[in-house]
Design a protein around this nucleic acid. Sequence first.
DNA 1: ACTGGCGGGACGTCCCGTTGAT
DNA 2: ATCAACGGGACGTCCCGCCAGT
Lengths: 189, 189, 189, 189
Amino acid sequence: VPKVSEEHKQERRRQILEGARRAFAEYGYFSTNVGRLEKAIGLSRGAIFSYFPTKLELFLALAQDDKRALGETWLEHGFEGALRALTTDHRDRAGVYLDASRLLRSDPKLRERWSSIAPDVVQAIESRYRKQRQAGTIRNDVPLETVGLFLGCILDGLAIQSGAGYLRDVDVSGLVELVRAALAPPDAT
Amino acid sequence: VPKVSEEHKQERRRQILEGARRAFAEYGYFSTNVGRLEKAIGLSRGAIFSYFPTKLELFLALAQDDKRALGETWLEHGFEGALRALTTDHRDRAGVYLDASRLLRSDPKLRERWSSIAPDVVQAIESRYRKQRQAGTIRNDVPLETVGLFLGCILDGLAIQSGAGYLRDVDVSGLVELVRAALAPPDAT
Amino acid sequence: VPKVSEEHKQERRRQILEGARRAFAEYGYFSTNVGRLEKAIGLSRGAIFSYFPTKLELFLALAQDDKRALGETWLEHGFEGALRALTTDHRDRAGVYLDASRLLRSDPKLRERWSSIAPDVVQAIESRYRKQRQAGTIRNDVPLETVGLFLGCILDGLAIQSGAGYLRDVDVSGLVELVRAALAPPDAT
Amino acid sequence: VPKVSEEHKQERRRQILEGARRAFAEYGYFSTNVGRLEKAIGLSRGAIFSYFPTKLELFLALAQDDKRALGETWLEHGFEGALRALTTDHRDRAGVYLDASRLLRSDPKLRERWSSIAPDVVQAIESRYRKQRQAGTIRNDVPLETVGLFLGCILDGLAIQSGAGYLRDVDVSGLVELVRAALAPPDAT
DNA sequence: ACTGGCGGGACGTCCCGTTGAT
DNA sequence: ATCAACGGGACGTCCCGCCAGT
């Protein structure tokens, strides 16, 4: 018989993830020591490490959530919506995402793990663009892969630039217009 | 009377920076410990830290060099050249650049320092796009700032994606074509 | 809910201070590295530095205790008692005291901190000698300050000499007699 | 054939010792790193270490000089002269002396070495007090050794106290009077 | 004779994850 | 379930002394 309800555990888990996101976003993965996690989360080491075995696992769980969340935002509100989210609600997520990207560079095992996150969402996005391409909504003279690379660059690049600090009011609308123009079929006058 | 010639010191400095770049690119700033620096550089702690007071200063000197180098490549070989460089010769630079971006997020003092690097190159690039905009080579219905944001996103984004590892042969040509289309004047049929 | 009782913590604190005193007395402040502290205390770095933030703070806490303890011995057993204690029970304290004196020379901030230790005891000692001076028990043709300087020199000097090692059996009785003669009223035949 | 004269070498040696004294007095033995020595002396590592094999040997040579110098001052100007010198010209020497005392505590080999310094001067001082004792100038109801302990305590104690900083104008005259009274024959009315 | 680049050991501190106590 | 004391490894930096170079 569990002492606490399953809901309680889920609630605690959420509390830990939320606090951890704030800490990781503010200090970065490596500069976030356990003391800072404790403070940001409001629980002690023991509690935190009973939900996640290591600091890295906690971080990865977070990054995983974020990757899925960003993908779902993209699906639900379109690319523009994803961009806007990056500069508003998901700002902290962008920090985590950046750290994750950096960790991925160095560790092939992590890369594998990363690519297996939320495959359904990734495929849904891909299939949407494939359809748009076939329907002629977006140009089809560049490979679909390149379109993905392009959009990924914009997303990731915005994550970096929005964190640089000198971008208070990012002109997302302008950016979206440029992206639209880039992907518009050539004959669209 | 100095023990070694000035040239020798410059040579050593270059040796240290080159080795450090390899190490930082492979492991990331935080996971590059001094032992790895020693091994990658081929010198001892004593030598390394007689040229740079701290690991951070060494890293920043590197990032500074890279920011300028990328800017100069951009000036000399155009945006496409800069993109290609990122995926070929400058690949290691991209890793350093990514780490720098992450460090910048957390530290306002570093941000200030970063923005004061190579202002001449930055201004030269800006003025070039301003002229192109006035000449009608690129569209003028979006602010110059937004063009900068767009190009910056592509560059930074490519830096992230090229390091992710699953991009062996990046379709830079396709990417360039999309960028061209994005910036082309609307009436260019 | 704390894991261990308050008593346990006090006990641990005492254990650390006692071990640290042995180590500092034997090797001196600077030659007492953390490994020696661990060995002398019987706890690990983690434990020690969870009670005292730095080696210096640990040392200062110790010196503070000692200054107060010596003063209280002086009050309770008189100057002779303090002298005897220095050569017997407080021998380790003398070593710590000597190191503290040396540290104080170089650092004004430490000096200030030092002078604010156990002011009640210091004042009690002062007032005792003031009364003795007024009562004619000790000579009053030298300023009270000079008496303090004199006694302080004897105490500090004995701390040095007793540690020099070549003084196994210090003639404290003779020393006390000389001190008595020095302070006796001139007309006391 | 030596390139430089013997005088030059002696001069250099003196320069090194003088600079080193300033540095050691200001920072203490352990906090005086070689960089500070270089600055205080005006020579580089290489030069310094060609005259003294290690930092410790340089320090000991200094302390040795100081012990002899203080003894000679004592012989020449009496105990009062030695006391006054400690608070004026020899102030820096006091710092070195204190460090030496601390080092001696921990190292028996150093102790032996220390006690073999300037035996002639030490014996001259001893014999002077032996004569005074026999002549009845100072009391003879305490062992000569105790007199030595007493005077040593005063000297060492003053070295400590004069460095504490809160003693700007030390009442040496008063101190001397107390010492005189302590050693005066009992029947001296 | 003198300089200072350099090797490499040692230091104090930090920090993660475990464990025993509540 | 939660806490915080604790172990012990690893880190960046400092620093001494050597010796190659002028």
